[in-house]
Design a protein around this nucleic acid. Structure first.
Length: 420
RNA sequence: GGUGAGGUGGCCGAGUGGCUUAAGGCGCACGCUUGGAAAGCGUGUAAACGGGAAACUGUUUCGGGGGUUCGAAUCCCUUCCUCACCGCCA
């Protein structure tokens, strides 16, 4: 959520930048400023009335002590009238505030100046490509064949106990999964992130805080009995640790493994085959809370960190700067990582690293004291380091040989086997 | 799930309708004192939304929401959370 004082001060700049996201914000911004003006006026009126009421109440207390009941009763009458007025004003105030919030929730985050224009993923800017595309043997296969051949994942068993999109990992498949989680966490810890293991369900306040609500209501599993949501990413619980807090030292660096749950309503076809798109998957997330002056250099460091993990796994990958049309509602700048999946001959997204600037912090009331001693919103950043399923898919596809699947060296200490 | 006790500032904690502008303490900051430190003394010490060039100033906030009252941290309703014991249980 953007804040109104910025919208006032930099209206033209913000309108221009939001065009990169293909969003015409002018009318909404004009409307919200107009509503905010009337909110201010109304607040003044309301405060005046309350101030008078407070004075009268004190006066009556004094008169009672003096025993001057007649005078006190006269005051009571005028108090009753003011109270009506106050009720009326605060009802208007409440309504106006809700209208303002509703409008603000419709305005996406402002894209960074470096975000390229564009409508869809075709327009994303490839900024780096690393590693060689592997040449596989003649009978190479996609991972959904390999996982069946080597008995690593049982998709049918998942269908039976839950439904499509809930795979059952088994044997060396389960071990490889567990190895990747440990490996990713260790890499993040070595880079200075503190490990957390948060709950996998969160309340609506938390969902609202990071923007999953109201934006993605239909994409989440909702436990209606207790009004809790299954988390779509660890970003939700971890970032919400810092909801309503005032930060003393920057940066705050957290990493967390969690399962992630997404309904993915409307997805179908070969894009969702095998591990490509799941309802439940594992992910290790990194989150940082930063001072606004340093958030972009921190974003660069996070990108380098994720790249270093992929280097160690010896997977070919490319880094994309998302164009305005592909950028999420809440993000200012996002870099996507895609690994090449040789069995499917396509690039698969495995990480998304973003700077949200103060967009999340505004809803979270996540602040720090600046040099002038005033509270100011922090910047929040996060990224996947990394999402498991497509890494798993690329590893088994790219490392398949006629003799089996080779495990990259860095993982062998975790799997305790060097091939499948 | 049952019963009981609670939720007050950064922290501890007093406060059963107006003397609270939330006592007192701890912590923190600044100053005095000192050769230096400690102790001691003094001063200050939240957030949000407004007004004002500023000094300053209005309102709200004692877990959340609602109510009673001229007036609520205090009374009532409701909800969430914490703790203790019991029950169930990985």
């Amino acid at each position: 959520m953007l804040n109104i004082s910025n919208l006032r001060e930099q209206k033209n700049k913000i309108v221009a930048l939001l065009k990169i996201k293909n969003f015409d914000a002018l009318d909404l911004i004009d409307l919200v400023i107009k509503k905010d003006n009337s909110r201010k006026l109304n607040q003044q009126k309301s405060d005046d009335v309350l101030s008078k009421l407070n004075q009268i109440a004190k006066e009556i207390g004094f008169l009672y002590k003096q025993g001057d009941l007649d005078k006190a009763n006269a005051f009571k009458k005028s108090s009753a009238e003011l109270k009506e007025e106050s009720k009326r004003l605060s009802a208007i105030q409440k309504e106006t505030q809700e209208e303002i919030k509703e409008i603000l929730l419709q305005i996406p985050n402002i894209p960074h100046e470096s975000v390229p224009a564009g409508n869809s993923e075709i327009d994303n800017e490839i900024i780096k490509e690393v590693g060689e595309i592997p040449k596989l043997h003649e009978n190479s296969q996609p991972h959904w064949e390999l996982t069946e051949l080597y008995d690593l994942i049982d998709f049918n068993l998942g269908n039976k106990i839950t439904g499509a999109g809930f795979p059952v990992f088994k044997g060396k498949g389960a071990k490889l999964q567990r190895a990747l989680i440990s490996f990713f966490l260790d890499q993040n810890i070595n880079a200075g992130y503190e490990e957390y293991l948060p709950p996998s369900v969160a309340n609506s306040d938390s969902m609202f805080g990071t923007g999953a609500l109201p934006d993605k209501e239909g994409q989440m599993y909702h436990v209606t009995e207790d009004d809790l949501y299954l988390i779509p990413t660890a970003e939700v619980p971890v970032t919400n640790f810092f909801r309503d807090t005032i930060i003393k030292d920057f940066p705050i660096k957290c990493t967390a493994y969690t399962p992630c749950f997404r309904r993915e309503a409307g997805s179908y076809g070969k894009d969702v085959r095998g591990l490509n798109r799941l309802h439940q998957f594992d992910k290790v997330e990194i989150v940082q809370i930063e001072h606004p002056d340093h958030s972009y250099s921190t974003l660069d460091k996070m990108v380098k960190h994720v790249a270093s993990i992929l280097d160690k796994l010896e997977l070919p990958y490319r880094i994309l700067r998302l164009c305005g049309g592909d950028l999420s509602f809440t993000s200012s700048l996002t870099y996507d990582f895609e690994v090449y999946s040789a069995g499917q001959k396509r690039w698969l997204e495995v990480s998304s690293v973003s700077n949200f600037e103060s967009f999340q912090a505004n809803r979270l009331k996540l602040r720090f004291k600046n040099k002038e001693g005033k509270s100011q919103l922090c910047h929040t950043l996060n990224g996947s380091a990394l999402a498991l399923p497509r890494i798993f898919a690329a590893l088994v596809e790219n490392n398949q040989t006629t003799d089996g699947i080779k495990i990259p060296k860095v993982l062998q200490a975790y799997t305790r086997f060097d091939s499948i």
